[in-house]
Amino acid sequence: MTTVSTPTGPQTPALPVAPRRRPRNRHRPVWQEQPSLPGAVAKGLVLTLICLAVLFPLYTVVLTSISTQATITEAGGLVTVPGEITLAAYRQILAGGIVTRATMVSIGVTTVGTLLSTTVSVLCAYGLSRPSSLWHRPILFVLVITMFFSAGMIPTYLLVSGLGLIDTYWALILPGAVSAFNVLILRNFFMGLDPAITEAARIDGAGDWRILGRIVLPMSKAVVAVVALFYGVGYWNAFFNAMLYINDNAKWPLQLVLRSYVLQGVTLPGSGVGQVDVATGAVTGLPVKMAVMVLAVVPILVVYPFVQRHFTKGVIFGAVKG
């Protein structure tokens, strides 16, 4: 239990000691004791270290993406000390409008896909959430099987092709629309809800659709947000299905387009001096790779806080209100 106990610090009967030393945190519920000084220091230290461990590499990635080739050559890799700054990598990627259109494709696919997947998963999870309901065990089994037995790439391709989905956006959504993992997570939360509430509604004559819509969903915003985030990130980051199923380059999603910039300037195996390199003015290598990494994360950075709200509201907020 050590990992769990550290954050809260030693269990001193802190109430009488602390108030004089520091002003009361207005976010602390009245019933919660003041933290002890060593506890607070330890916690602060751990959190600072964690943040640094993430921020420093992040900083080098961003810095490298805006460094000139000369600076990168000097550093011999990722840049840690700022040198000459240039936005050439970003300019190059964003020029020509291809990225803009691909972004629209990705937003469309992600939105429709996330809505579809989340809806289907919530329905399925709720449908399986009442213990001993009809056929729920065989249905669960059908779900779980898909987690451990996958179909190969070629059979899946033949199916998608056979359904006439090649070069359609549905090919990017339908094959991976349902994740058994996410269904199980949702189901787990639904089952954790106080059965008394749903039971009461049932006695009042509410059907399952109504219970799901009016009672279960409003109480499960947090987990639905998390699952939607999982699906959304999945759709947003996916490139492999698009690579396989989309021949029309105008329909490429963002991740596939961004990857193509990373590949720029690659020496082909066995390629010699004859290899065409028309775009000699192009920025290649590290700065582009890093810029691509940054650009791919930006939309997630934008959306995350809105989603985050739903799964961080809880104890403390509630307590303040109460």
Binding site: M153, F239, D248, R259, L263
Partner: peptide
Amino acid sequence: FQISDGNTYGDKLAAVLAS
């Protein structure tokens, strides 16, 4: 042209040639 990502081209080929 149906241009495909050079890095995963082998996968694309394997699938397309099978169909």
